[in-house]
Nucleic acid binder design. Structure first.
Length: 377
RNA sequence: GUGGGUGUGGCGCAGUUGGCUAGCGCGCUAGAUUGUGGCUCUAGAGGCCGUGGGUUCGAGUCCCAUCUCCCACC
C-alpha cells in the first residue's frame, strides 16, 4: 500500500513523502541508475548506503538479456540479489525501443529486438515487460512504452501515443494479475504510467488527461531530453505536469543536468534519474557548485585540492584532484569509481537540499543561487 | 675490423618507378555525451624525414661521406 503525502508546496515545487513496501522516499529525489543491477563505475549498494541515497534504478531489458529475470527471481528478486533493501524502480525496456533503434521491429503486440549481447531475437510487449519486472520484484515498475524520436512527425507521434496508451491498459491488467499470484515476489509492485507526445502540446495534454483516469500510483513524463532544446523541454513540462494527478508522484524520465533537474523541480516534478553522474564520472567529468570539471585536463596535474572544497563524499574526504587525474589517466578503475561516487553524492545532495529549500518556502532563491554558481567555471 | 640492416612528430610505424600543403596508430590538448553496450564521436597541437655534401626543374625516396643502433662473422 503506497501512500503519497505532500509535505509542502512552494509555488509549484513539491516536497512529498512516498511510502512504499521498501521504505519511504522523500521527494524531490534523484534515483541512481544501475542499469544491470549495478552502478557502472564499480559502485556498490554498500556505497549507495554510505552516501545515503534513496532509490536505485534498474533496467528490464538489460536484466532480461543478462542474467535473465528468472535467475534474479530465484535469488528472491533484485532486492536480495543486490542486497539493497530500499526502493528500486525498474525501467520497462520501452526506452530501448528507442535507444537501440535499428535492432527492433514495433508492432501492436509489442517489439522484436535483437539482443545486443548475442544477437538472439527477443520479443517484448506490455505483458512480457510486466512479467519480467514482476520477476525482478522492483518497488515500482514502469509501463512499457514507445519513446518516439524527437524529429517524428505529428502523425507518427499520434499513432505512437495511441498505441502506448493501449499498451498501458494491458500493463495495468497484467500487473494486477501478476500481483495476485502466490509466487509473486512483490505483491504490492506499483505501476507508473508514462506520458508521451513529443513536443506537441495537445497530444501531451490529451494523453496526460486520459492516463490520469487510470488512477495509477504514479506518472512519468517520458520522451524528453531526446534532442529537443531545453526551452522546449521546460515548455512541455509547463503544459503537461498540471494535467497529471497532483496527489501522485511525477517522474521526469532520464533527466538530466543539474540545471534541468532544478527546472523540473520548480515545475512540480518529484522523481529524476539520469546517467550523467555515472557516465560523466567514468569519463572524468565531475560536478561542483561552480560548474563541471574535466579531471583529464592538464591543469589538474598538480592540483592538490579535493574535487570540491567542503564536499562530504568519500572522494573529496580522502583524495586530491591530481591523484584522481593520475588514476584516470592510468585507467585505474579507482579513478572512475571516485568520480562516480562524487557525482552521485553531488546529485543526491543537491536534490536533498532542494527539498529542504521547498520545505522552507525558499526554493526560488535556492535555484537562482545554484544556477548562478554553475556558471562560474 | 668485415658484411648486412636501421635511422620519418613523445612511442611504434607507412611512404609505391624521385612530383604539389609528409601520412597512420597510440599518446598528448580540448569539446560533445540526458529512461547507460566501461563506449563512441568531433576538433586541435606536434616532424627543417640522423648529419653533411652531391645529382635533378624537383630528394623522405637516387649517389658519396659520416654518425647511431641492431644482427652475423672474424
Amino acid at each position: 500500500m503506497s501512500k503519497y503525502t505532500i509535505d509542502n508546496i512552494d509555488d509549484k515545487a513539491k516536497a512529498a513523502t512516498f511510502e512504499t513496501v521498501h521504505g519511504t522516499i522523500q521527494t524531490p529525489v534523484f534515483m541512481n541508475v544501475g542499469t544491470v543491477a549495478a552502478i557502472k563505475g564499480a559502485v556498490s549498494t554498500m556505497d549507495l548506503r554510505e552516501i545515503d541515497t534513496q532509490v536505485m534504478l534498474c533496467n528490464t531489458y538489460h536484466l532480461h538479456v543478462r542474467p535473465g529475470d528468472e535467475i534474479v527471481a530465484k535469488f528472491g528478486g533484485l532486492h536480495k540479489f543486490t542486497n539493497w533493501d530500499r526502493p528500486i524502480l525498474t525501467d520497462s525496456g520501452g526506452f530501448q525501443v528507442f535507444s537501440l533503434a535499428g535492432l527492433r521491429k514495433i508492432k501492436e503486440e509489442g517489439v522484436s529486438f535483437n539482443s545486443h549481447i548475442d544477437g538472439r531475437k527477443i520479443f517484448m510487449g506490455p505483458e512480457e515487460s510486466m512479467q519480467i519486472q514482476s520477476h525482478l520484484g522492483s518497488t515500482i515498475a514502469m509501463a512499457f512504452d514507445e519513446c518516439p524520436p524527437s524529429k517524428a512527425d505529428r502523425k507518427y507521434v499520434e499513432q505512437s501515443v495511441a498505441r502506448t496508451e493501449r499498451w498501458l491498459l494491458r500493463c495495468k491488467k497484467e500487473m494486477e494479475r501478476l500481483n495476485s499470484l502466490p509466487e509473486t515476489i512483490n505483491k504490492e509492485q506499483m505501476l507508473f504510467g508514462i506520458n508521451q507526445g513529443g513536443c506537441i502540446d495537445e497530444i501531451r495534454i490529451a494523453n496526460a488527461d486520459r492516463i490520469s483516469e487510470l488512477d495509477l500510483p504514479g506518472y512519468a513524463v517520458g520522451g524528453l531530453a531526446v534532442g529537443e532544446t531545453h526551452e522546449e523541454m521546460y515548455h512541455i513540462l509547463d503544459v503537461t505536469v498540471p494535467h497529471l494527478p497532483q496527489n501522485k508522484p511525477v517522474y521526469l524520465m532520464g533527466v538530466g543536468t543539474p540545471a534541468n533537474i532544478l527546472e523540473g523541480i520548480e515545475r512540480g516534478v518529484d522523481f529524476f534519474d539520469c546517467v550523467y553522474p555515472s557516465r560523466n564520472g567514468r569519463h572524468g567529468h565531475v560536478y561542483t557548485n561552480q560548474g563541471k570539471l574535466n579531471l583529464f585536463n592538464a591543469q589538474y596535474e598538480l592540483d592538490d585540492r579535493p574535487i570540491e572544497e567542503g564536499c562530504g563524499c568519500p572522494a573529496c574526504q580522502n583524495y586530491s584532484r591530481g591523484y584522481i587525474r593520475h588514476l584516470l589517466k592510468a585507467k585505474e578503475m579507482l579513478g572512475m569509481r571516485l568520480c562516480v561516487l562524487h557525482n552521485l553524492y553531488f546529485y543526491n545532495k543537491m536534490v536533498h537540499d532542494a527539498r529542504e529549500a521547498i520545505l522552507a518556502n525558499r526554493f526560488s532563491e535556492f535555484k537562482k543561487s545554484k544556477l548562478e554558481g554553475f556558471q562560474v567555471l
